[in-house]
Simulated scan of single mutants.
Amino acid sequence: MIIGIGETVLDIVFKCGQPKSAVPGGSTFNSMISLGRTVGRLYPEVPIVMVTQIGKDMVGDIILSFMRDNHVSTHSVRCLEGIQSTVSIAMLDGNNDASYEFFRDSDAPSFEGGKIEFHPGDLVLFGSFFAINKGTREATKALVSEARAAGAIIYYDINFRRSHLLDLPSTKGFIEENCALSDIVRGSSEDISYIYGSDDADLVYREHISPLCTTFICTRGAGCTEVFSAGAKAVFDVEKVETVSTIGAGDSFNAGILFGLLKEGFTKEKVGRLAKEDWEKLVPQAAKFSANVCRSMDNYVDPDFFEKAL
């Protein structure tokens, strides 16, 4: 299976003060939809599972229907009576980068996760503030720990936003604990700059990440992608893309890496010692996912992406 653990929202996207689109979103959710549109079509025997919590309301119905339409299982979605599903407002700037404001139900109970039977070789994705927030962390950590014990490959996307800097003193330990639970850690240059005061990926990997997790991906938006593992370091240029929206670009990059791990049949042991030639199979593939997302207002790859690019 490929399992995502995280928040699900309805993104209402504005540009120049006007609404442009309304689509289901959430960092891990976006990745799972991209995987549903690729793995779900090319490898239908591999279940794509999203573990999340929503309200039993109109927004929740939209989300559930969208998941089913895109080959993502709803069996591990907790639908709660009497609460409202989360809505976010995403404001695009002149570079088509987004800033967010979230509207959550303050009465919603803490995330409880759910019962998943993990297996060796499963791929598990988690991250963002969801993985360190006090209302969602404990259940998320329990699921990830269970997956790790079962032999699943754990992928952690740090995805730490400027708006959470005031929380850093109380959450930095959680971030590092998440890294220690993981087989692959992905962070943007902004993430590591906020957390460690430097965007020098070599320095941050050597002093902070590698003692916790030997495999690290640092993305730099339209710049390069730097990768580190026990077996290699490599740098990849990023294709120049005329963007419509960058929402979901990093999320679909994550999906592309997971797709590549599945496609290449990489084991948990292999992930810990990826060589340069392995990264040459994974990163360009992930970059295709990311570039495709930037060309539309959607948060995920096109429905026919697997026909055009894979």
Rank of each mutant, 00 (worst) to 15 (best):
P109S: 12
A98K: 02
F126D: 09
K115V: 12
L92I: 00
I89L: 13
A131R: 03
I158R: 08
G94L: 03
D93A: 02
G151V: 06
R104D: 13
F129D: 00
S76M: 10
L123Y: 02
Y155L: 15
Q84S: 14
H164F: 14
K141H: 12
I153V: 12
I89G: 05
R148E: 11
D97W: 03
R78E: 10
E138K: 13
P120Q: 00
G173M: 12
L168R: 00
R104S: 11
C79S: 14
S73W: 06
F102G: 01
I89R: 10
K141F: 11
S88L: 03
T140V: 00
F102I: 03
I89M: 14
I116T: 02
D157M: 04
V124H: 02
D93W: 03
G173T: 08
D97M: 09
D107H: 15
A147L: 07
F126V: 02
S106G: 14
A142T: 06
G127I: 04
G135F: 11
G82E: 10
L80H: 10
I154A: 03
T74F: 11
G94D: 12
Y100V: 00
P120C: 09
A98Q: 04
P109H: 11
D107P: 13
A90T: 04
A150V: 01
F129Q: 12
S110E: 15
Y100S: 04
S85R: 06
D97C: 15
A152N: 05
D167C: 09
L165G: 09
R161Q: 07
G173E: 07
N70P: 01
A139W: 10
S88E: 09
S128A: 13
S76L: 05
L165E: 13
I116P: 06
R104L: 13
